[in-house]
Computed example of a mutant assay.
Amino acid sequence: MAEQDDNPLNKAWGLSQLGVALRVMGKLDEAVEQHRQAFVLLESLAEPQWEIDFLPAYALTLRVAGRHDLAKAMYERTLELAHRLGRPYEEKLAREALTA
């Protein structure tokens, strides 16, 4: 039997990936909830470099679910973090998502 992993980052990653899978399956409310739970865990870590890795998937799920204002806020946060962390690829993707 596998040991339970109590690492919040690993739990957040798993919840985020579950959110992506649920989005693909069309279970949008459940997908949004999984992403939300992932971000609750990430907030306790206060590490922007991890947050930026999770934001685009959450934003896309929100967009697909029709929650455009929240999706826009997530893309804007991605843009802010990408600029601050010197991650031009993520900055470019966030800009494109905001203009789509």
Rank of each mutant, 00 (worst) to 15 (best):
A2I: 11
A2N: 11
A2W: 09
Q4M: 08
D5N: 15
D5R: 12
D5T: 13
D6C: 00
N7G: 08
N7I: 08
L9K: 08
L9Y: 14
L9I: 10
N10H: 09
N10E: 14
N10K: 10
N10F: 07
K11F: 01
K11V: 04
W13A: 08
W13C: 01
W13G: 00
G14F: 05
G14T: 10
L15H: 10
L15D: 07
S16G: 07
S16K: 05
L18I: 08
L18A: 14
G19K: 07
G19V: 09
V20E: 12
V20R: 12
V20H: 10
G26I: 10
G26S: 07
K27R: 15
K27C: 03
K27Y: 05
K27E: 13
L28T: 07
D29K: 14
D29I: 02
E30H: 08
E30L: 13
E33G: 10
E33P: 04
E33I: 04
Q34S: 15
H35E: 04
H35W: 06
R36M: 10
R36S: 14
F39L: 12
F39P: 06
V40Y: 05
V40K: 14
L42N: 13
L42H: 13
E43P: 02
E43K: 11
E43D: 15
L45W: 00
A46Q: 15
A46Y: 05
P48E: 04
Q49L: 11
Q49G: 02
W50D: 12
W50S: 09
W50Y: 14
W50N: 13
E51S: 10
E51F: 07
I52P: 00
I52S: 02
D53G: 11
D53C: 08
L55V: 07
A59N: 08
L62I: 03
L62A: 02
L62K: 01
L62P: 00
R63P: 00
V64D: 01
V64C: 01
V64Q: 00
A65T: 05
A65C: 05
A65F: 03
H68V: 12
H68F: 11
H68G: 06
D69C: 04
D69G: 07
A71W: 01
A73L: 07
A73C: 05
A73Q: 15
A73W: 06
M74Y: 08
M74P: 00
M74R: 14
Y75L: 04
Y75K: 02
Y75A: 04
E76M: 13
E76H: 03
E76F: 11
T78A: 02
T78M: 12
L79F: 04
L79V: 01
L79Y: 12
L79Q: 14
E80L: 15
E80H: 13
L81V: 09
A82M: 09
A82S: 15
H83Q: 15
H83P: 00
R84H: 12
R84Q: 15
L85S: 12
L85W: 10
G86W: 06
G86C: 09
G86K: 02
R87S: 00
R87C: 00
Y89M: 08
Y89H: 10
Y89V: 13
E90N: 03
E91F: 03
E91D: 03
E91C: 01
K92T: 12
L93Y: 05
L93V: 09
A94N: 08
A94P: 09
A94T: 11
E96N: 10
E96G: 08
E96W: 06
A97T: 05
L98D: 04
T99I: 08
A100K: 09
